[in-house]
């Protein structure tokens, strides 16, 4: 089959700007029609949308590709806490209560304790960043996330020199998360990053998508997005952030260590034992969606490859 490895972005892939930016009006209308906004968390200034969420568009960290539809992004989810089918989270996540929400911060930091979601979010202006999202199952999307750099949040807790890694924990409550009633994974879900990965400007704490508050099925109210790693690193519905000295466990690695590593950097050269990672299918292109080449570090190599200099990426997959 003819392939075009050199041109990753076809002109037809790019949404005309007038179409793309007009969506704000639709979003504003949706918010006015009753979608709950983050009004009480609005940062000062940076007003770019008519009502509801306020944010600036960060073009520097955005890819120049057309985002997937809101529907694709919010109905095709891996969130095993709500079931293992892609369509389960949207059906079952209604039982998750995201307010009130609090986050425990502990470990090797000067500032620790329990913080309300409002405390966590207050100082951080929101930005929209259009990121590639690559699932370990070899499919991908383009998502306009709304969030702020994780590093800005972590600095507020003044991590000590012993803090080499940061670990995140998802809510554990089988009443709200029916998928946790079955021991499919070792609940609660945990994930971790090396400190330099966590502080990298691309690493995002996400509270919204497409200008709206994050829907439950996408990991509300607070989730991580690490765009150069496989999706399972981007832990959802976070209730705990721990600064730790040793490399923390991460759930999929505990489940099947030979299939999922700690680093999980997107890497077309290292296959999953059961399938190839060389290509991916971009969701949203229907029946005739072509597989496209997967890029090292999901296309973010120039920004993050230096973090792994000298490391054997085959060993530390």
């Amino acid at each position: 089959m003819a392939r075009t490895p050199s041109t990753r972005i076809l002109p037809s892939d790019i949404t005309p700007p007038e179409v793309f930016f007009n969506r704000r009006q639709a979003i504003a209308a949706a918010i006015a029609a009753g979608v709950v906004g983050l009004a009480h968390e609005e940062p000062a200034g940076a007003a770019s949308s008519g009502s509801g969420l306020k944010y600036t568009r960060n073009t520097r960290y955005s890819v120049n590709e057309a985002p997937n539809s809101y529907e694709d992004i919010t109905t095709y989810n891996n969130f095993y806490e709500f079931g293992t089918d892609k369509s389960d989270p949207v059906q079952n996540a209604g039982s998750l209560r995201t307010r009130p929400w609090s986050v425990v911060v502990d470990g090797e930091a000067e500032v620790t304790g329990t913080f309300t979601l409002e405390d966590i979010l207050k100082p951080h202006p929101l930005e929209e960043r259009i990121y590639r999202f690559r699932c370990v199952e070899a499919w991908s999307m383009i998502v306009p996330w709304l969030g702020f750099p994780l590093g800005d949040l972590l600095k507020r807790f003044k991590p000590t020199s012993k803090a080499k890694y940061v670990q995140f924990t998802t809510l554990y409550d089988p009443k709200q998360m029916p998928g946790q009633r079955y021991p499919i994974l070792d609940w609660p879900y945990v994930e971790g990053l090396r400190m330099d990965e966590a502080m990298h400007p691309l690493t995002l704490m996400v509270v919204g998508v497409y200008g709206k508050v994050l829907p439950n099925q996408n990991g509300a109210p607070l989730r991580l997005i690490v765009p150069w790693k496989y999706g399972f690193k981007s832990i959802k519905s976070i209730v705990k952030i721990s600064f730790v000295e040793r490399q923390p466990r991460n759930t999929w690695n505990v489940a099947t260590p030979h299939e999922y590593g700690f680093y999980a950097n997107v890497n077309p050269a290292v296959d999953h034992p059961r399938w190839s990672q060389a290509k991916e299918r971009r969701i949203g292109n229907g029946f005739f969606a072509k597989r496209i080449d997967t890029l090292p570090f999901n296309g973010y190599a120039d920004q993050v490859a230096s973090l792994y200099k000298g490391m054997d990426l085959r060993r530390y997959f």
Binding site: N68, E71, D72, Y76, K86, R281, I283, F287, A289
Partner: peptide, 8 residues
């Protein structure tokens, strides 16, 4: 509907 990933 065949959903967002109709091939799969």
């Amino acid at each position: 509907s065949l959903g967002p990933d109709p091939i799969k």
